[in-house]
Design a protein around this nucleic acid. Structure first.
Lengths: 109, 109
DNA sequence: CTCATATATATCGCATCTCGATATATATCG
DNA sequence: CGATATATATCGAGATGCGATATATATGAG
């Protein structure tokens, strides 16, 4: 299952990078990582979670009931971690290029 | 006309940042900016160009016949330039966050 | 007690976006 | 003569985004 590396997919992967989280926790983490700019809607969240699971980049990682509510946890797989690292490197390279285009002559161009 | 800031949209905007280019020139510039990773298909290119024009972020900038073939040029508007600068800043911030998550303790975390 | 909000899950369907296929045309190189 | 590169553009299938909707519990305000 090949899925498209969209920003939403990248952000969910990044949100799960440090430790397993449940869906709602992913939304909060993405909000934090994006400085409040990206609030994943429920439709987007579960769609991405399903595709990421089908791609083998994340996997379900147990359930837990907290305050009477179910939490379903997900964690990044080795494949997912490798993909995330590669995609991060690609984005860093791209932003460096972009900076050189938009702000030329600032050392590093 | 609000359009979605996808990576393809961002790349076309960035490709037009330094000076006007025609469609085919945009494809080549994006290929270069992405280190050969992103080869815009014709369908994507003209779709993005149309949406970018409708959003007022780029505008047609004359035509020219070179070697018997028509070139239709596009340039970034002030609104487009502001959007591109803001989006670049957002991406830089995001990649800094990502680096801090994936490679903690490397100064700047 | 009630209502709103936050937490937490999930699905549905419309709109949007991507992208290969297709079409048309000229120039170049083998 | 055919393949490849340059150059435009459209079409439609499939993928993706996201608001609306549904269900359920906990908490705090009024």
């Amino acid at each position: 299952m090949a899925i498209r590396m969209t920003e939403q997919v990248y952000l969910v992967l990044l949100a799960l990078a440090d430790h397993p989280r449940h869906g709602y926790g992913v939304v909060q983490r993405v909000l934090e990582l994006s400085d409040g700019a990206v609030r994943l809607s429920a439709g987007t969240l579960y769609g991405v979670l399903d595709r990421l699971t089908a791609a083998g980049w994340i996997t379900e990682s147990g359930e837990e009931v907290v305050d009477g509510r179910l939490r379903r946890y997900y964690r990044v797989t080795d494949d997912g971690a490798a993909t995330l690292a590669a995609e991060t490197a690609r984005l860093e390279s791209l932003t460096r290029r972009a900076a050189a285009v938009l702000r030329p002559g600032l050392a590093g161009a």
